[in-house]
Structures are given as C-alpha cells and as structure tokens.
Design a binder for these strands. Sequence first.
DNA 1: CACAATACGTCAGTGTTGTTGACATTCCAA
DNA 2: TTGGAATGTCAACAACACTGACGTATTGTG
Lengths: 167, 167
Amino acid sequence: MPDNSGAPSGQSLLFLTDEQLRKGIEAMFFAYRGFTADPDRILAEHGYGRAHHRAVHFIHRAPGTTVNNLLNILGVTKQSLNRVLRTLIDDGLVESRVGAQDKRERHLFLTEKGGALEAALSEAQRGRMRTAYRAAGPEAVQGFRTVLEAMMEADMRGHYEKMKEKT
Amino acid sequence: MPDNSGAPSGQSLLFLTDEQLRKGIEAMFFAYRGFTADPDRILAEHGYGRAHHRAVHFIHRAPGTTVNNLLNILGVTKQSLNRVLRTLIDDGLVESRVGAQDKRERHLFLTEKGGALEAALSEAQRGRMRTAYRAAGPEAVQGFRTVLEAMMEADMRGHYEKMKEKT
DNA sequence: CACAATACGTCAGTGTTGTTGACATTCCAA
DNA sequence: TTGGAATGTCAACAACACTGACGTATTGTG
C-alpha cells in the first residue's frame, strides 16, 4: 500500500538507499542515548536504574494499574518487574493495595515521595524533548511522531494513547 | 521564554503541552523497542547481545578503526568493550591487527563470517526502518531525522555523519 | 637515556536488569 | 468441592554495564 512508485509525493528524496537508512539507524541509536541521559543521572543519585523509571512513569500515568497490566506494557517478566517494585515499595515511593473485587490483584499507586521523583524525572526528560521539538519546528515534530508510530511493534501501537483502564 | 505566541512558524500545532511531550516520550520508548526487536532475535540465536551488535556495526562502518576510537563512539568502558571484542575475535568474526605506524594500536576488521552477521543484522534493521519510512512518507522522514539530531548529545552530533578516520 | 604518557589487555569485585524454576494464594468453573 | 488458571513472590543465575588496580608494550619528551 505504500505505492511510492507511482506517486512521487511531491517532495524530493525518498531514495531509501542503504546509506540513508544507515544514517537513520545511527541517529536512532545516538538520540536514544541522549534521550535517556538526563533521567539516568537523576536515577543514579537515588541508586535506581531505568527499570525504576519505567515503572514509576507508567504508574503515574495510570494510577491503580495492576502488576499484570504493567507487565504487558513493559514487556518483561513478572519476576524482573517484581524486584523493581519491591525496592520502590520498600523505599516508600509506591503503594500496593490488594484488589477489592479480585484479591489476587495488586493495584499500584505513587506515594507523595514517588510522585516527587516522577516529577523530577519527567521534567528532565520533557526538557530535552521540548528543546529538540523547538529546535526542529512543528512540521518536523509531526514527521517525527509519524515515523515513530510506524516503527513500533504493532501490538504496542495505541498503548501510549490509552492504557488499559482496569482500575 | 517559550514564546510560541510570536512565532507561529507557519504550521499549526507546537503547543508543547505536557501531554504532547508525554506522548512523544512514550513513542520514543516503544519505537526504540520495536527498532531493536529484530536484531535482538538474530543475536539471541548466536548467543550475542546488543553490545556485540554495536561493535560489529561500527567496525563494519569504519574498518580498521582502533579500540580507542570505538570506545569514544560507544561510550562504554574498555573492560566492557574488551569482553565483547574478545568473544567476537575468538569466534572468528573480528580480526585485530597490530598498527603499522603505532604498534600499540589494534585495528579492527570484520572477517567474512563477521561481515555475514553484520549483513543479517543490518538487513533486519533496515527492513523495519524502510517500512516505517515508506509508511510515513518523505516529509515525515525529514522531520524524524531533524528531531533526532536535536535530541542527541552535542558531542555525538555528527559522529554518525563521519567517524574519525584514523585508519 | 630515563621517564612519563599512551594504547591495550586483564583480573577482581559490584550493581542493575533480564531470565527460569518453584511456590503460595486466590478465583472460577466443571 | 476439586482441579486448574491467574496473580504475585522468592531464589538462583546470566548478560553487561561499572570501578579500581595492574601489567606490558610502545611512543614521545626532557
């Protein structure tokens, strides 16, 4: 359905030479590193890693989400996630409440302290994103988002739009 | 200081609300995972990880590069890189030659076998990149690249254009 | 020449984050 | 009610990053 053969699409370059693609691949690599650099610094001060960041991020975004829910989003094993959650709970950043209907489930919430960390991490990352967006301009941002959406796994498309609401 | 009021920049939306930025952040997260999914599968078959992929990629791109050169690009410690290089050399994917001028340096090359792995990894990743590019269209690709460049660390900008040529 | 600096490799130890395997609890349906 | 599926926890292990300390060969400099 792309059909770039019959429709030059007005613009100029969609050669897609291996060279072009290679540049895109490397840009992705370097950009992702820059993208995570600021949060990584903050996390290191607290003795945490990226796994903690991801957990805190998605709990903030969907308070009351269950462990299983988080598992599907993050794409890791429950054992791996559990270790991270345990430290966050022990440190008083996350609260785990037994489910009302289904007592097997645990619903996760950020405490005030956890919310503070989330805010710090989020602000650092938004800062870099904002700077990049401003430098690139609105049209570039639109293109950026379009390509990223096409790049992610099909079963993840839309997960960042609305997470399952099973609160 | 934002002043998105005075400079509409032609297009429409550069609101940059926290919601907009959050979507961008999550898109980056999911897209990077999709971006590395295919190579990860191939690497797992060979018992390798992403660290091996990165090494093989940059050696392919700049044959004869030195260990120190690679260190600067990858941003890891020499101990970490050395572990990876050792396995690649032992498995006959990479060849290490003593420098002609400076005998302290080791110049790295892919063997035929190493080139084959690189080609497989590269083709898998290019395939996904190509699909995303086609789906998004030329203008989107341009914007994608522009934002990524603005997002990467300043000292890495241009490294993907031309690596130091100290062959 | 003697000495410092550079480039590379290695050994030992630690931490984060992923994995499998085993297990307890809870729910649901045959 | 009983067996199985779902949910979450504990234990052990592997990959890969890190720091720190050394050893060696080579280069450059006073």
